[in-house]
Simulated scan of single mutants.
Amino acid sequence: MRFDKGYAALTGALLVTEILIALFVRDAIVRPYVGDALAVVLVYAGLRTVTRLGVLPAVALALLTAIVIEFGQYFHLLDHIGLSDNRWARIILGSGFDPQDFVAYAAGALSVVLAERYRRASRAAAGTRTVRSPSDSSSTI
């Protein structure tokens, strides 16, 4: 286990952004699609904050988490566990299944891969040395 301050800061900023979107944005683009894409990035950043998972395993786990939550919405999980009236549960886990959300989740995952690739290329061009753990598969992207 580890703690990465940079990913922690990103996780915090994304969490605040997601909460603000959920509470105050009522539109047809940002709330349903940008918010869902950012949710995958949020989970990814959280994973990278506290684990030594590489880019691809962490983004795959973040994407899988979003997909599992979406299927939880399809099967009305909040109703089954008695949290359908809990506002925070509805904000965090969502309340309605939408197959288009899978596209937003994929876009979030793709944006992570592209951002990490750009970050690695920028560091290489600047001559910045990065320290990688043996489990960091980010060198494969």
Rank of each mutant, 00 (worst) to 15 (best):
A8P: 04
D4R: 14
L78P: 01
V16H: 00
I92C: 03
D36Q: 02
A58N: 06
A106R: 02
L47M: 09
A9C: 09
M1Q: 12
Y74N: 00
V34Y: 04
S137E: 00
G35V: 05
S111Y: 12
L64G: 07
L14N: 07
A39Q: 06
A115Q: 03
Y33I: 06
F97I: 05
D85K: 12
V113F: 09
Y33T: 00
V131W: 11
F75E: 13
S135F: 12
L83H: 09
R90E: 10
A109Y: 03
A107L: 15
L110G: 15
P32M: 07
L14V: 04
R132C: 09
A124M: 08
A60I: 03
V40Q: 05
L110I: 15
R52P: 06
G96Q: 12
L53I: 06
T17S: 11
L56V: 13
A28P: 00
K5I: 14
G46T: 03
V68G: 07
R120Y: 09
V40D: 09
V55N: 02
A8H: 06
G94A: 08
R87V: 13
A13T: 11
G108K: 01
A109T: 06
K5D: 04
Y118L: 15
A45V: 08
V50P: 05
G6M: 10
A124C: 08
E70V: 03
A37W: 08
R26C: 10
L23C: 10
H76M: 03
L10P: 01
V55S: 06
R132T: 13
I91L: 13
Y118R: 15
Y7R: 01
F3H: 09
F3R: 01
G96P: 08
A109I: 01
S133K: 09
V68M: 09
G12S: 09
A125V: 06
I92H: 07
P57Q: 11
G54M: 04
G108N: 05
T128H: 12
E116T: 11
T128M: 12
D136E: 07
F71C: 13
R132A: 14
S84K: 13
L93E: 04
S138K: 11
I91A: 07
F24I: 07
D27S: 10
E18F: 02
Y105P: 00
I92A: 10
R120E: 12
G127F: 14
D98R: 14
P32V: 08
D98E: 12
G12Y: 05
A109P: 02
D101I: 04
P57K: 14
V59D: 05
T128K: 09
A39W: 00
L77I: 11
I21E: 07
T140C: 08
F71M: 15
V41Q: 07
L61H: 04
